[in-house]
Amino acid sequence: MKNNIRVERAIKNITQADLADQVGVSRQTINTIESNKYVPSTVLALKIARIFGKPVEEVFILEEED
């Protein structure tokens, strides 16, 4: 699974720390999600998508091997 969090963040002009605060996780978690080291739970994915005001599919994208 890949994601557009970094791009979306740039569009909204918020830092990893801001996003982390808003969804209630640590900065490390946002960082590892962005670098595809950690797959968030459904709840967290929905929360992140809600911050960006987009459906989850536009932020998180399934890949071939998933």
């Binding site: 490390q28 590892t32 968030p40 739970s41």
Partner: peptide, 9 residues
């Protein structure tokens, strides 16, 4: 200090 789902994992 900051407990979240990744820490649990």
């Amino acid at each position: 200090k900051f407990e979240d789902e990744q820490i649990i994992q």
